[in-house]
Design a protein around this nucleic acid. Structure first.
Lengths: 338, 338
DNA sequence: GTGAAAGCGCTAACAC
DNA sequence: GTGTTAGCGCTTTCAC
């Protein structure tokens, strides 16, 4: 059994309250007493029990993070940023993985909101359509921040990648490089991020007076095998496509590999741009031009905001700017070098 | 403020203990009462506060996980496995990232052991040389399981990849393919995993009566730029090396890219094998032969063991088999296809 | 400057 | 079957 303040009090012949105050450097406590307490605490290897302290103070010193998939490169990088911020503030991070299931997401939200954490960071699952679990959370006044996978149905702070601008920039880059018939490997239809990237594609075409051809929009649902199929199908029916924008790097890489196996030259015949700047982007041959969207920073900013809400710092909680866009950047590599 | 069992008791005109018992389906409680409590709990949107319950029961229903880096592919996959097991048992997972710092590791161990978690899963940092923080933990009887990055200085349960066997198998594969002068890109010298993989290399050479040449052992410390430098240096002094075993895939991939830029043909002139089966292994050209070591399963098994220790299930806590090796598997791709 | 006492939300031994 | 009481480890108001 671990040492408690009671044990220290007994050893010193004082009361637990004095020990508690001394450990918190309370101004009214005698310096000598403080020293004695500190020495004894060290000697007895005492560590304050934050769970008990938290129960009393209605705090947990924990934040909860719910993501679709922990092992995904993007999310594990955001987790790293979140952990960094929390650690500085002596907060612990509780992680949950929904596997893109709405029920799991609900379950975790309910579990965490029952006094487990002081605030929740959430990246919504692909399947999530109802937001009751989140409106309940807001009503309970539990700080909530959405990051990356957000929704416009909720009036909470959000940290997002520049999906629209990134998509626009990617496609504009293909146009700059001379592509005139550009296809897109799109993501899940109910995911706001995919939709925004797709809007970027459409607007870039429009602004450069290129026709929008629905047959060139291929929904791949973030699945590699789907990217392969769609690429084969696309180029068998439209062999004159000269540019491909994939809404993430996995699709882009799969597309490059498929194109090469079909005998197309990348980037000479077909240029390809991805989204995400995953490690594979540097490795594929030719190296993939892509949009870098800084997942670490997305996590970092989301965590900063929730810490702000928890400590009720000025101007961070909803009411002020409710959406923070993390800058994305075009990284030009050889997959568009023609 | 959230609903408490007291609120439910007041609403129903019974005592909090009755509510508590009803919610736990205590056999001696009247079925009618149970129903009434459940209905009222639902109506008032009650969620049991596990933190308070835990304080009383000396449990937290949390496990702590400490890893060098969350965003690393290997560790994020182990986290995923850990989370899966914990979730099934209604446990939460607290994650901490040491950034390979011994001080951070100590800090987290102390923070978590102060009543934060029921058990700790640790992958030790590259820098860790002292084990006082861990022996303290053991002395406090807090369940501890080491995974992947372990140490033989501690008598606790460990889950490891087959580093030695994997290294041996990788090198034997090169020998089978006809390589006779095989170099190794080795990892950090104080990391048991790198050392075991290196032992595998040495023993494979010995068993196949190939000479061990110290000049062919290149320490890269898991750094890609180091892998590049060492490869250049190695092949300028030993251009007749015909096989490279890299102790992880990042080094292997960097080595392939460097070799290609130097004008070597992979695999015809130089065959390369990696370790880890990272996503980049499939993408590099030629695709990398490598050792797959199942990080998800490593996390899964480690979590299963700690849950067992926490619930004091038979035969899981130290005393029985103290080391579990997760099978590794050679995956043959084109980087060794000659 | 320090102690006593109450209480955070819950559980469990002991009553009746 | 259900209520009363005490207590997990800590903080904090109110005394003195």
């Amino acid at each position: 059994m671990a040492t408690t303040i009671k044990d220290i009090a007994a050893a010193l012949g004082c009361s637990p309250s004095t020990v508690s105050r001394a450990l918190h450097d309370h101004p009214q406590i005698n310096e000598g007493t403080k020293r004695a307490v500190r020495v004894m605490a060290k000697k007895m290897n005492f560590q304050i029990n934050q769970v008990a302290a938290g129960l009393r103070k209605h705090k947990t010193f924990c934040i909860g993070v719910i993501v679709p998939s922990i092992s995904n490169y993007f999310f594990s990088s955001t987790l790293s940023g979140i952990q960094e911020v929390a650690s500085k503030r002596q907060y612990q991070v509780l992680i949950c993985q929904t596997n893109e299931s709405e029920e799991e997401e609900e379950r975790y939200i309910r579990a965490l909101s029952a006094g487990r954490v002081d605030g929740i960071l959430l990246s919504v699952s692909k399947a999530t359509k109802k937001y009751r679990h989140l409106t309940d959370l807001i009503q309970q006044k539990i700080p909530l921040v959405l990051f990356d996978r957000t929704t416009d149905k909720l009036d909470v702070f959000k940290v997002e990648a520049e999906d629209y601008t990134g998509g626009y920039r990617a496609v504009e880059h293909l146009i700059d490089k001379g592509c005139r018939k550009i296809a897109v490997l799109a993501g899940p239809e109910n995911l706001i991020n995919s939709q925004n990237r797709l809007r970027g594609y459409k607007d870039a075409l429009k602004d450069h007076e290129l026709p929008l051809n629905k047959a060139l929009i291929r929904v791949c649902d973030f699945s590699r095998s789907k990217a392969r199929e769609e690429t084969i199908e696309l180029f068998s029916t439209h062999p004159d496509v000269d540019g491909v924008f994939a809404v993430n790097d996995e699709l882009a890489v799969e597309s490059i590999l498929t194109l090469k196996s079909l005998g197309f030259k990348v980037p000479q015949q077909v240029s390809v741009v991805g989204f995400g700047n995953y490690p594979i982007a540097q490795i594929v041959d030719p190296p993939l031009s892509t949009i870098s969207h800084n997942p670490y920073l997305i996590g970092y900013k989301a965590a900063q905001n929730i810490m702000g809400q928890i400590h009720e710092e000025h101007g961070v909680s909803p009411g002020g700017e409710i959406r923070e866009l993390i800058a994305s950047e075009l990284i030009v590599r050889d997959s568009t070098n023609r």
